[in-house]
Simulated scan of single mutants.
Amino acid sequence: MTARQALRLGGDRAGALAARVTGALRDLTLRPLSPYSAAAMRIGLAGLYVLHLLRELPHASRLWGPDSPFTPALFAETLAARGQDGAFAWWYQLLSTDSSLVFYGWYAVALLVSALYALGWHTRAMAPLFVFVVVAFYLRGTMANSGWALLSLLFANYLVLVASGRHWSLDARRRAKRGDIPSRYVVWGEETEELRRRAVTVLHNAGLGVIALQVMVIYTSAAMYKIRGASWRDGTALYYSMMSDDFSTFPELSAWIASHGTFAAVMAYVTVFSQVLFAALVFNRRLKYVILVVMLSTHIGIGVFMALPLFSAITVVGDLVFLPTSFWLAAAGLVRVWRQPGENSAPPSSETEAQAGAVPGQRVQV
């Protein structure tokens, strides 16, 4: 090969790479990624928060309200010590009151906002209001927060950027009835509307990217901490977990698992390796679903055997970000087949895929 041929070959490859990069950047402004996953995360997160508030309703006053040992005065001192007594102090102290009427009034507002967000009613407005609620409860319960509370706070903030009301929402149902383009946008001109669409798409894709990064950081950091522990390296970590009275839903079943040392050791190693390799395998088309199933099994085991259902559920919600639109369309097809077994269900049409955001350049109403 001559020098001229080598330069020409290198130039062709560089041009092809530049074209791929340009196409990918163009898609990020035109094609919203995983709109169904965004809707599922919205429903999962807000639905879990509704269940959380309802479950803790009998104990709410002692956890966050007037009967809490973390009194309003002590809470105010804590905020001042942390430097959080500035302009937003009124927000952080919404639940810090000696009045049961005021506290349960805000509690009812929190339930309503969470329910409306899960249903997708005016999703763009409900998303920041939901963050408003989650932050207030998180700071008020700062002395008793868990991993569930932290992840719900993080995901709630990230979902503000995401257009999660395009599917499985009251907003989507309302748009389907009145048409694709609301008349209020026409007055601003077609170019302004196109700019708005692209900006929303960029923010949507960025929000999903941050959520995916957060999930990978969680798994990788968890694996690094496990590797440092001797019990995870010698395979006895699950044994001690199962024998702990503080994390035991079914003591007899936990004791049975702990009695099978080889099985417990294998599960310990599977847990560590799946978390270490998660970031590398989840973007592989063939191994994506394998690693997600392994992680789902791990979360179910934690929720059932260690009495941490909310933590397990919120991590499953985070994993949904890695499911592509094709998965949800295929799942919808299976549901149609199951509901109507006597009819032949046709595969999703190109129109359906376009509405799901699968065609680059296709406009999708926000």
Results as ranks from 00 to 15, higher is better:
2 T>H: 06
5 Q>K: 15
6 A>G: 01
11 G>R: 15
11 G>Y: 08
13 R>T: 14
15 G>N: 15
21 V>T: 12
21 V>L: 15
23 G>S: 08
31 R>V: 04
32 P>D: 04
33 L>T: 13
33 L>A: 15
36 Y>D: 06
38 A>Y: 11
40 A>F: 04
40 A>R: 03
41 M>V: 09
43 I>L: 13
44 G>I: 03
44 G>W: 03
45 L>G: 02
46 A>C: 14
53 L>S: 01
56 E>W: 07
62 R>K: 04
67 D>A: 12
67 D>I: 02
70 F>M: 07
74 L>C: 01
75 F>V: 01
78 T>D: 05
79 L>F: 11
81 A>M: 05
82 R>P: 02
83 G>W: 11
83 G>D: 13
88 F>R: 09
88 F>T: 13
91 W>Q: 09
92 Y>D: 13
92 Y>L: 15
93 Q>K: 12
93 Q>L: 07
95 L>V: 00
97 T>Q: 09
100 S>R: 14
101 L>T: 15
104 Y>H: 14
105 G>D: 06
106 W>Q: 02
109 V>M: 01
113 V>K: 07
119 L>E: 10
120 G>Q: 09
123 T>I: 09
138 Y>M: 04
138 Y>Q: 06
143 M>W: 06
143 M>N: 07
144 A>P: 00
149 A>D: 15
152 S>F: 03
154 L>P: 00
155 F>R: 02
161 L>N: 12
161 L>F: 15
163 A>N: 13
164 S>H: 09
165 G>A: 07
170 L>R: 04
176 A>I: 00
180 D>Y: 00
180 D>W: 00
180 D>H: 01
181 I>H: 01
182 P>W: 00
192 T>W: 07
194 E>I: 03
200 V>P: 00
201 T>I: 13
204 H>L: 09
205 N>W: 10
208 L>C: 08
214 Q>C: 11
215 V>Q: 13
219 Y>P: 04
220 T>A: 14
227 I>Y: 14
229 G>H: 14
231 S>T: 15
236 T>C: 10
239 Y>M: 13
242 M>A: 10
247 F>W: 14
251 P>V: 00
251 P>C: 00
253 L>Q: 10
261 G>H: 12
262 T>Y: 06
264 A>G: 10
266 V>R: 08
267 M>N: 14
272 V>Y: 04
275 Q>T: 07
276 V>Y: 02
276 V>S: 02
281 L>H: 02
284 N>C: 10
288 K>D: 01
291 I>M: 01
292 L>Y: 06
300 I>Y: 11
302 I>K: 05
302 I>R: 05
304 V>S: 01
305 F>K: 08
305 F>I: 08
307 A>F: 03
310 L>E: 12
311 F>H: 11
313 A>F: 10
313 A>P: 05
320 L>R: 06
322 F>M: 07
323 L>F: 11
326 S>A: 12
331 A>T: 07
331 A>M: 11
338 W>I: 11
343 E>F: 12
344 N>T: 15
349 S>L: 11
351 E>R: 12
354 A>Q: 08
355 Q>K: 09
362 Q>M: 04
364 V>K: 02
366 V>G: 01
